[in-house]
Structure formats: C-alpha cells, structure tokens
Amino acid sequence: TKIIYHMDEEETPYLVKLPVAPERVTLADFKNVLSNRPVHAYKFFFKSMDQDFGVVKEEIFDDNAKLPCFNGRVVSWL
C-alpha cells in the first residue's frame, strides 16, 4: 500500500510503502513506519468519501481502524 502524507505546511508530500494490502492497512501500520517522528503529537486526517459531502478529510484516531483507500493508495495529513 502506498501512503502519501502531508506534514504541517510543507509543500511536498512524503510517500511510504507498506507490505499490507490496501483494504487491510490500519492506523497502527502507518504509525509504525513513522517511528522517527513523535506520532503522539499529531492528529491524523485521511482523504475519505462521505455520502453527504463527497470527498473530505476524516480524522482517524483508533489504531485498529482501517484506512480509507483511493486507487490503491492512502492520502493523509498530519
């Protein structure tokens, strides 16, 4: 699974690849690859589809939650 993530106000996003199927990747999986960053200091928002509003940034805080996936990749903002 490819996860593209944006940090603070930085213009260029980062990319990490996880050896987990897109439909199975969790917030804990993502946090594990960010071990060099203080993950407890961040809120995690993900590109998600809402039936009422369309594409939104959804906050996910449960480490066991599966991450929303679009075209085989996850897009996140920290």
Rank of each mutant, 00 (worst) to 15 (best):
F70M: 07
T1L: 05
D62W: 03
L67Q: 03
L27N: 00
T12L: 11
E59C: 08
V25G: 02
V25Y: 05
V75N: 04
P22R: 04
Y14S: 11
V39Q: 10
V16N: 04
I3Q: 05
V55Q: 10
H6K: 09
D52I: 13
N71W: 02
V56P: 08
Y5S: 01
P68Y: 00
N71Y: 04
K17P: 04
Y5G: 03
Q51H: 12
E11V: 11
S76F: 01
L27M: 01
N32I: 08
E10L: 09
F44M: 07
E58H: 15
V25M: 01
H40Q: 13
E58F: 12
D62M: 10
V55I: 09
A41V: 10
S35M: 12
F30I: 03
L18Y: 01
D8Y: 08
R37W: 06
R37P: 07
F53S: 15
P19H: 09
D52S: 13
D8G: 10
K47I: 07
D62P: 00
P13E: 15
D29T: 04
I4W: 08
K66D: 05
F61Q: 14
E11C: 06
P22E: 03
H40V: 08
D50E: 09
W77R: 03
C69Y: 10
N36L: 13
S48T: 14
F70H: 10
V75W: 07
V25C: 08
F30P: 01
K2T: 14
Y42L: 09
L15Y: 15
V56R: 15
Y5L: 08
K17L: 14
W77Q: 07
D63N: 09
R37K: 13
Y14Q: 15
K57V: 15
A21W: 03
N32F: 11
V20G: 02
H40C: 10
D63L: 03
A65L: 01
L18T: 08
E23Y: 04
F61M: 12
S76I: 02
A21S: 11
D52T: 13
K43P: 00
V74W: 00
V16H: 00
V33A: 14
E58A: 11
V55P: 09
M49K: 14
W77P: 00
H6Y: 12
K66F: 04
F45P: 06
N71C: 06
N64A: 04
I4Q: 09
R37H: 15
L18N: 00
K2A: 07
L27T: 00
L15I: 14
G72A: 03
R73S: 14
T26M: 04
F45D: 01
N64R: 08
G54Q: 15
G72I: 01
E9D: 11
A41Y: 12
A21R: 08
L78R: 00
V74E: 07
V33E: 10
K17E: 14
E9A: 10
F70P: 04
T1C: 13
R24D: 14
F44A: 02
P68V: 02
T1E: 03
F30W: 00
Y14V: 12
L34Y: 03
M7E: 05
S48D: 09
G54E: 14
F70S: 08
D52H: 15
A65D: 07
H40P: 04
A21D: 10
I60G: 03
L18P: 00
K47Y: 06
F46N: 01
A65R: 09
M49A: 14
N32T: 09
R37A: 06
R24K: 13
S48V: 14
N71F: 04
D50N: 14
D29P: 02
L18S: 05
K66Q: 11
P68N: 03
H6P: 05
A41P: 07
S76V: 09
V56L: 10
A65P: 02
V20Q: 05
P22W: 02
L18A: 10
E23I: 00
M49G: 13
F61D: 10
F61T: 15
Y42W: 05
V16C: 07
F45R: 04
K2N: 15
P68L: 03
R24C: 12
E59V: 05
Y42N: 04
P19I: 00
F30R: 02
I4K: 06
N36Q: 11
L67C: 00
T26K: 03
F70D: 03
P13W: 14
K47F: 07
Y5C: 06
I60R: 03
C69F: 11
D29C: 07
L27H: 04
A41I: 06
V74A: 09
V39L: 09
Y14I: 11
A28H: 07
S76H: 05
A65S: 10
T12Q: 14
E9W: 05
F61E: 11
K57E: 14
H40R: 14
F53H: 12
L27Q: 00
E59L: 07
D52K: 15
T12Y: 05
E59Y: 07
F61H: 07
F61A: 11
D62F: 06
K2Y: 10
N32W: 04
P22F: 13
Q51P: 13
A21N: 12
A41S: 11
V55K: 06
L67I: 02
G72L: 05
K17A: 12
P38L: 09
K47P: 02
M49Y: 14
A65H: 05
E10K: 07
W77S: 01
L78S: 02
F45L: 09
V16L: 10
G54H: 15
V74S: 03
V25T: 02
E11F: 04
A41N: 12
M7Y: 06
